[in-house]
Design a protein around this nucleic acid. Structure first.
Length: 616
DNA sequence: AAAAAAT
């Protein structure tokens, strides 16, 4: 029989009982709650109405530090770890929060909330993550010139400051903690639209503040909800907001952001994704969830287990919405949105965000939306692009040595011979592994991220890359979208994607946070179909197009009808406009609903040049 | 044809 010091302490502090079907005496605490009763006892427990002293024994054993006052409370729980934490509620949320934060269970949630702003080992990352909006390299005045297209009925006017939007004192504090000074363009337009309860399809460059654009209104809306009529039942939880994204890492990133925005608001954000133990995620869900951030597969699993119900959903946001609705994901998304218990469109509020929005995907997406507003925002300083794009003709057989030349030159030019962070995109998972191996044996510390690696390996790879330990990351398209990795100096398209939109997302991993970035593409005979859209894209963003590419583009197979990027500086434009124009029909019944800001008069393929803003 | 996403 094993005995340890811990065991003996436990024994001395507890009764000893003898199990019926086991002759070995086992120490059991007097307050022992059998595992099968633990969660339901917790879930069904009446909302505590006072200091949790009467729960201390219960919480100390089964619930750990859940109630903040338990013996297991850790130093990072509660604000600043000072006193008993209850004073902190009064200090921070008192008074101003009346009627806003009086939700049941709100008080205890805030108390055990880890401060997301003191980000343990990643202080630098936190600073970098927010530097986007304090970086002097960003010229905020340039925002005024950013091209914006809006269409739809009764579009709410944009705001210029966060102060103009009443998000509540708690959220204002979090915005200050995030060091957000001014809303970004997509935030200026999207937040008022969302706060007005309107459905939205938004097209904006990644790294332009999209996450906050949909999180702020959702959190604020949930804070305004009167609590009480909330559905409950057994082990099922009923989130009010649902945010879906196409990769696990992106869901984690959104979750991290949302936790900052919702800090001490009482709004609980939980993330669920595959590849990680489900039990931990179930436990988090049982503690209560207002906003669930998830990847589709794991969410379907949770729905089928009846651990999550969507019947209370009021806010649905799809990030990278065009990817979510492409062939691979569409059935799962339809199942979640249309075939489970989610309220219908029009009842819930739906927001779709992406940097690119192909017309055919817009058509699909309109199934999920109700009289929505379409918003397209160009990129900051679209005329002087932050990303320098280069295309080189490199035959397949030369790609590796060519990459090595680039990396070598980069290392020699870099500070102290340090390798700048370089993200190398390849087509296949196998190709990623083999290129990574080859780079490593040739003296370039690399790692790789793709769908055949375990989630642990994926997360380790990302951390190792971010920290500079392995300054080269070889990736498949799993890393193409949404991931905010600061300091990526160079994106190499070792294998070009077949879809120009994927190219746009990939190069968007650099040139972030007001820094300049370089994107190099290796073009070979297998990329002929990309010649035309690539040349057009580069021309639109004032890049130098090599003559040989122009040549390929001009004689490219004329299937180039995939010219859906007619928006130029946008990732897409409202397909309703194009179709109504084509049919010579006015979709909205009035000619003045579509509005274009700061765009050339001939933009929009036939819109009256006189169309101006109603609030210009 | 490939990648992603549940076990």
């Amino acid at each position: 029989m094993r005995t340890s010091w811990a065991d003996s302490v436990a024994n001395s502090a507890s009764e000893t009982s003898v199990s019926n079907n086991n002759s070995v005496p086992r120490p059991i605490r007097s307050t022992y709650v059998p595992p099968h009763l633990r969660s339901s006892a917790v879930a069904d427990a009446p909302t505590p109405s006072g200091p949790p002293t009467e729960r201390a024994s219960f919480g100390g054993n089964a619930g750990g530090s859940r109630w903040g006052g338990g013996s297991g409370s850790k130093p990072e729980y509660g604000r600043q770890g000072k006193g008993n934490g209850y004073a902190a509620v009064g200090r921070d949320g008192g008074g101003s929060g009346s009627g806003r934060n009086n939700r049941s269970a709100g008080w205890d949630r805030r108390e055990r909330e880890v401060n997301p702003f003191v980000n343990d080992d990643r202080v630098d990352d936190v600073k970098q993550g927010f530097s986007e909006q304090v970086n002097p390299a960003i010229n905020f005045d340039a925002y005024e010139d950013i091209p914006v297209e809006i269409s739809g009925e009764n579009v709410p006017p944009p705001v210029n400051t966060f102060a103009e939007i009443d998000l509540g004192e708690m959220m204002n504090q979090n915005i200050r903690r995030c060091k957000y000074l001014k809303p970004t363009p997509v935030q200026r337009y999207a937040i008022p639209i969302a706060l007005a309860g309107r459905d939205l399809m938004a097209c904006a460059q990644t790294g332009s503040g999209k996450t906050a654009a949909f999180c702020f209104p959702i959190i604020s809306g949930i804070m305004r909800e009167q609590y009480g009529q909330r559905a409950r039942g057994g082990r099922t939880v009923y989130p009010l907001g649902l945010i879906l994204s196409p990769t696990r890492e992106l869901s984690c990133q959104i979750h991290d952001e949302a936790k900052k925005f919702s800090y001490q608001t009482g709004v609980k954000v939980v993330v669920a994704y595959g590849g990680a133990p489900i039990n931990q995620q179930l436990r988090e869900l049982e503690r209560g969830v207002d906003i669930l951030v998830a990847t589709p597969g794991r969410l379907v699993d949770l729905l089928e287990r009846a651990r999550v119900s969507l019947q209370s959903i009021r806010y649905l946001a799809l990030d990278e919405a065009d990817r979510m609705l492409d062939m691979g994901f569409e059935p799962q998304i339809r199942k979640i949105v249309e075939q489970m218990d989610m309220p219908n469109r029009g009842v819930r509020q739906t927001m779709l965000f992406s940097a690119t929005f192909p017309r055919e995907i817009q058509r699909l997406a309109s199934d999920f939306l109700s009289t929505y507003i379409f918003l397209a925002v160009g990129r900051v300083g679209s005329s002087t692009d932050l990303i320098v794009q280069r295309v080189e003709f490199v035959p397949e057989s030369d790609k590796r040595s060519h990459l090595m030349d680039l990396l070598q030159a980069q290392r020699e030019n870099g500070e102290h011979g340090k390798q700048a962070l370089t993200l190398v995109f390849v087509e296949t998972k196998k190709g990623a592994d083999s290129l990574e191996h080859w780079l490593c044996i040739n003296g370039f510390p690399s790692t790789t991220i793709h769908g055949d690696r375990s989630q642990q390996e994926r997360e380790l790879a990302l951390r190792s890359f971010k920290s500079g330990k392995t300054p080269i990351l070889v990736a498949t398209d799993v890393a193409a979208r949404g991931l905010d990795i600061p300091h990526v100096a160079h994106v190499v398209n070792f294998d070009l994607p077949n879809d120009i939109d994927d190219y746009v997302h990939r190069i968007g991993r650099t040139g972030r946070a007001g820094k300049t970035g370089l994107a190099t593409a290796f073009f070979d005979e297998s990329n002929l179909s990309l010649a035309r859209p690539l040349a057009e894209l580069m021309q639109e963003s004032n890049q130098e197009v090599p003559p040989w590419l122009t040549h390929y583009a001009s004689r490219a197979p004329y299937g180039g009808n995939k010219n859906r990027r007619s928006g130029g500086r946008f990732g897409g434009c409202d397909f309703r406009r194009e179709e109504s124009f084509g049919k010579n029909l006015d979709y909205y019944g009035g000619g003045n609903n579509g509005t274009a800001f700061g765009v050339p008069a001939d933009y929009g393929g036939g819109y009256a040049p006189g169309v101006t803003s109603a609030w210009d």
